[in-house]
Structures are given as structure tokens and as C-alpha cells.
Design a binder for these strands. Structure first.
Lengths: 219, 219, 219, 219
DNA sequence: AATGAATGAGTATTCATTCAT
DNA sequence: TATGAATGAATACTCATTCAT
């Protein structure tokens, strides 16, 4: 049914204009997301994205200046998901907490499905790489501040550089999902969590923290 | 200049044919290397590689069946460099040893300059990803075997999974060079080495190993 | 010009979309036809066909997957024309009938203009050769069945193989148009028809048939 | 062994220069012939012809200005073979004679193997088409003269145009080898010969000629 | 706003021909 | 003469983007 007919028959336009536009934009984003994951960024064409979204090629360009911009919009929505969460140390058994955080993070990354596309982009798109680097710096600061507090409480190793520990922590957390591909071993988040915790806390601290928790739990 | 004239005017410093061909091949490899780093693999054309090497387009295809093959040749030369060296634990101060190994590895990677290109390839070229994964599995086994020996000697943490430690170790070593970009802090290999060592050895083991070394040095 | 203006300024002779597309397709077919005849199939490029049709290269590929497909479309329209018509023997003066059939056939072939291109295709394109061969076999069967009926009526030579006569008949009809080029003599369809008839009928049969006709005409 | 050494050791050049050159030329011709038949003219490259002949690419261009010239040389040698022989009518049983002539001609054509290439050339190469047409006109004249003599002796049909008969004769002879492909029937030269003879001679003439022969044979 | 036909610059690859050795 | 590496114009086809409807 055309716009013209709409007006002739006096049908009430159920969806407000802006909302309808937003709908198309979302359709396009979804379509792009699917295809980028399926075929890679470079090998997806604007025409395909439009067709897959059920709109005309030209419509794509009404909502996005180009393919790259669609991708950027996609990433803006998702970049938060890439960020590992900041754990609160010294509150509960750090190993269990971390293990479940890692697993949850991994899950979200997988749901997002953009891992396949990101490396291609990082390599090619300087601007995007910078956006991501900035995000990482932000999370770095957050984690570092957490560790600094733990350090002040005397919970962490005294002889390790906190900056380096923070970086190691992020690096391991970020790459944990790839463990299988690289080494042929299934990722056991509990073990990764133990290793990461060892980077931060001396074993006896962990024990104390764990017993505190169980004490609390028993009470 | 004819053959006859050659003899009249005496020796002309001719480069043997094979050598000349090798020269061109090398020129092309070098040119491809430069451009892949500069513009990324996908955005470099065979024509450009040839032009940048100062030869005609057709010449490119005499030496390489296509762009991908040139890249593969490039990588064959360099894949060894990607492999972190296997350290001998318990022989000398592990932290210093590891620090210098990391630094050397990082240096080679930087010389190679392919970091920018690799992620793009891994995402796109399944075959290449498999080659690299295989190489990584190999190095994984080597490192694990080293750690197992150290474990047998009672040098390592007793409560950490050696597989996971090995993976962490490789991951940190591999990504150490990116530390700057990601966190804005200059990579201090000494600190990274200390962190990695902490993953493997309890602090007192390190101390013992270091004192042994200094004892030997003093004698 | 906007939709709104359209209505203000009155009717603008818009060609419906589909028709316009058909128009372009036809332009391209015509252009391809011209160039194939002018330069041969192999030496005509898609780009040229497009340029000659006054459209962009890409437009060519919107309507045809490639050069070969355009040619096939061209031939589909024309293959019927290649088929010599099946004459009804014994109904009227066979020589006159045949002569006019030959002339008409020749005319159509010339209009089609593809003679120059066909040999090239037959040599190169096995699939096409088979299509044409199948068509020829079909017409062969039709003609043979006509001759068999004439044979049953005792109209034909008794000592000639009907298969061979059929083949000869087709061959002569097919190549009649080339007579000029090959021998420098203008094609007189009447004479070719007489020759072909002699292959089929003894002279006295022809005479009888002709007198029957004139008898009927006189009545 | 190089030319230089040849001269130093005083070895006697067994093959005279010219002859050696002729040898290479022949090798190239043979190689081109093979490949043209195998892959078609357009799809054979000069490099391949040279390689297949066991010489360098450049050598090809010493002996032939280009691919086309090689082909022309090839055809010059073979064009005679394309010419159907001129039969002497009225000397022996015309049907048998013609049958064996046709068979021999067909055989030579097949040996020559160029049928696959000729149509491609005729379509593309005007000059070549003219050369061939000229040759055909020559043979046309020869055959026509034979027929005229037979006509003078009262051997031929009186009501058929000799030009047209000549052309029909040539056309049928030329295309006889294709009979199988076109109609799915094996070529029986005896039947084709009978048909062709019927075009020329009334049946009773043939009978007379045949009986004469057997009379002569009996004597 | 929406459409999708049209555009044409851009890409990988081939091959006839030249020319330094 | 012979070589074969080098050349670069040419070709088929794609796709981001525009624009008339």
C-alpha cells in the first residue's frame, strides 16, 4: 500500500513517522550485523544489507552515510559489552567471583558475535582502533583503582607493579575465550580465575578471603 | 650491446640470471611487506605492489600466483619469529632471563612489522589461521613440557593447572608488545617478566634461584 | 521534478519502469547484435556493448550475467529462423514452392545477420553447438517424414537413400545463401530449387505435379 | 652446448644453419597445429606454442611475425587438401569413383584436423576467408569445366543449370563429413555419391557408363 | 521518504610482443 | 641466433554511491 492510498482511505498511520524511521534503521542495523558476522565486513555489500533488511538500496544511504557508519553504530551499541566488568575484591571468594565474571563476559561476547569482524576492523580502521583503545584505557583505570584499594588494604602482592598486573589481568580475561582454538584445551574458567587471582593476591590472602566468606555464610 | 662488443670492452659486471630473478622476487616481497603494513592486506593491489617494487604488473605474476601467495611467502620467512622462545627454567635468574627474552621477541616482532596485518588475515583466511594455530600448539607443548619438568623438581606452584599457566604465559608474552597501545603505559619487560614468573614460581623459589645464581657468580 | 509538481504541471509522458527496463535490455541486445556481426563474438567486450548501447558497463551486467548470456538471448529469439520450413510435397508445383521457401528463408537469415557469428560459436561453444545440432535433428526428422510419405505415394526416386536425400536437401538449403561468396554467382533460388527437386523426384513426377496444378488452376 | 663452444672445439655443425632454422620453424608449425586443434586458435598463446615446440618464446617471433602468420603458413600447406579433387566423368563408374574420392577427401580433412579451427577463422579473419573463397572459386571453375564437357557429350541433365549443379556438388562434398554430427547417421559415401551423381546424370546415363566399364573390364 | 536502476571507477589477471643478455 | 624475463595494455566483472521517479 502506497503513501498516497494511505491518505486517500484516511487510514490512521499507526506508527508515527519517526518511529517508523527508527524501525527501518534498526532493521538495517540488524541486517548488517547478521551479514558482517556471516561474511565479514569487507565482503558484505550495502546492497545486500538493504536487501536482507527488506528495503531498497537507496534507503540504506538515507540512514547511514556508508557501510562504515553502520558498523560504527553497531559497535557503539556493543562496545560496552566488550568491557570486562570491574570486580570488587575482598568482598567474597575472589576466585569464584572472577570465574563467573569471566564466563558471563565470554557469553556476552559470543552473543554479540562480532569477534569475527573486530580483528579485520582493528587492522584497517585506525579510528575504530582508537575508539576501542580509549574504551580499554577507561576500563584499565577502573581495574587499576580497584587494585590500588586492595593494595592499600595489604591484600595484593607487594613486589609486583600494579599497572602491569592490571594489564595482565585484562589481557588474560580478554583472551580467555580463545583458549580452545589456540591450545586445544577447553577453557575452564575456574582455572583461569585461579591464575589471575595468583597474579593479584598471595595464596594466603585468598585463603583468608575464602574463609571469611564461609564464616559469613555459616553465621 | 652485442655479445661481440662485450668481449671487446672487457668484463661487464653481469649479475647471474638466477640471482637477478631472486632480486626481483625479493623486491616484490619487500614492496608487498611495506604496503601490507601501510595500507592493510585487502587494500593493497598486485599492481601497486609491482609499481612500488619498480616492476610491471605482469612481473608480479611471474613470481607469485597472486597476492595471497606473496603474503604466504612473507609469512613463511617470518612465522618462526612469531614463536616465543622456550626458556630453560631453574638455570639462572628466571626473571632477568624472561625479561630479555620478551624484549628480544618484541623487537623481532616489531622488525617484522606484520602485526597490523595478521589480525585481518586470521579473520579472513581460515587456512592461514590454522597454520598459525598449529604453530602455537607446537610452542604450547614445548613450554608445557618445560613447566612439567620444573613441577617435578618442586619449583612451581602446586595448586595451579599447568595447562592454564602455559596458556597464560603465552598469552601475556604474545601481547606484551601491545601494552602501550592498550593502556598507555610503556612496556617494562622486567615487570612483565616478574608477573609471568609469579604465575609459575612461588616467590621463595625465585629468590632461591636468584641467590644460587649470584653464588655461582661470586665464586 | 517531484511527484507534487508532476500533478501541477499535468501529465508527463512517463514510461513505466518495466517498459523502460525492457527498453534498455533491447538496446543492449541490439547493440550486442551489431557488434557481434561487426567484430565477431570474441572480439566484442561487454564494455563496448554497453557503450554502444549508450549505457554504463554496470548496466550491462544488470541485464545479462555475461556476454555469452546476451548472445544466447539473441539466439533464442532467432533459432526458429534458422530452421528451414517443412515443405508439403505433392500439393503444388514443388519447384516454385521450394524456390520461394528458400528465398524467404535466406531473407530471414540475412535479416538476422548472425551468420558471421555462428561458425565461431559452433567451434567454441560446445553447449551451443549441441543446441543447434538438436534443432537440426528435429527438422531432419520432419523433412524425412515428409519424404517418406512421398515415397509411399511413389513420387520419389526409388533407388536413393531417403536419409541421405534428406541430409543433402538440408545442406543445400542451409548453404544456399553463401553461394555468392563461394562461387561468385548470384543465387538463383529457382535453379537451386530445381536441383533440390531433382534429388527428390524423377523429372516426370515433377511434370505431372506441375500439370496437375495448372489443371486445377485452369478449372 | 653453446654456439661459443661450438666454435672453440671446432665441432662440425652437422646440420647446416638454414636447415636447422627450417627444423625449428617446422617444430613451431607442428606445435601450433597441435595446439590450435586442441584448444582452438584464440585460446592458444604464442608462449604455449613455443614451449610445446621446445623453444623459447622469443624464438617464435624470429620465425613468425605473430600467431596469425603461423596459422597462415599452416593453412598454405593444407589448403590444397581442402580442395575436393576434380573427377573425370564418363571414364569409369561415376558413382564408385565419386564415393572413393569423397572418402579419401574426408580422410585427408580429418588428418589435417583443422576443421575445428576453420570456422573460428572464417568468422574473424576476413583476409583468410577471402583466400579460401578464392581457392574455392578455382576449384569451382575446374569442376564446372568438367561438367561442361560432360554436357557437351550429352551426359548430363539438360534442364539443370550447370553453375548450380557445380555449387551443389561442392557443397555436398564439403559437408559430407559433418553428416554424422548433424543427423546422427553414419556417413555412407556410396549413398552420398549416388545422390551427387543423380544431380549430374540422368539414371540411364549412369547405367550406360557402368555397363561400358564392365564391358571394358570383361574384354 | 522510498525506490532500485544506473553509474563508472576500480580489481585481479592474462598475454602478445619486445629486448637485454 | 636463441633466450625468457619483462612489459603494460586490455578484459571481465563488482560495488559504493547517486538520482530520477
Amino acid at each position: 500500500m502506497s503513501d498516497r492510498e494511505d491518505q486517500l482511505v484516511g487510514e490512521f498511520p499507526l506508527i508515527p513517522k519517526q518511529e517508523r524511521a527508527q524501525l527501518k534503521r534498526d532493521l538495517l542495523l540488524k541486517s548488517g550485523h547478521e551479514l558482517f558476522i556471516l561474511k565479514g565486513y569487507e565482503h558484505t555489500t550495502a546492497k545486500e544489507i538493504a536487501a536482507n533488511a527488506g528495503v531498497a538500496t537507496g534507503t540504506f544511504y538515507r540512514y547511514f552515510s556508508d557501510k562504515r557508519q553502520l558498523l560504527m553504530s553497531l559497535l557503539e551499541d556493543q562496545i560496552e559489552m566488550l568491557m570486562p566488568p570491574e570486580p570488587k575484591w575482598g568482598v567474597s571468594d575472589p576466585e569464584s567471583t572472577l570465574a563467573s565474571l569471566l564466563e558471563a563476559h565470554d557469553k556476552r561476547i559470543k552473543e554479540m558475535g562480532m569477534q569475527r569482524v573486530l580483528p579485520e576492523l582493528l587492522a584497517k580502521d585506525t579510528e575504530f582502533a582508537e575508539v576501542l583503545a580509549a574504551a580499554k584505557r577507561k576500563i584499565f583505570t577502573r581495574i587499576l583503582s580497584g587494585l590500588t584499594k586492595a593494595y592499600a588494604k595489604g591484600l595484593t602482592w607487594k613486589d609486583l607493579d600494579l599497572n602491569t598486573v592490571t594489564w595482565s589481568l585484562m589481557t588474560l580475561a580478554e583472551h580467555a575465550p580463545e583458549k580452545v582454538k589456540q591450545c586445544g584445551i577447553v577453557t575452564d574458567y575456574r582455572e583461569v580465575a585461579k591464575v589471575i587471582c595468583r597474579l593479584i593476591f598471595p595464596p594466603e590472602v585468598i585463603k583468608n578471603l575464602q574463609s571469611e566468606v564461609s564464616t559469613v555464610e555459616k553465621e
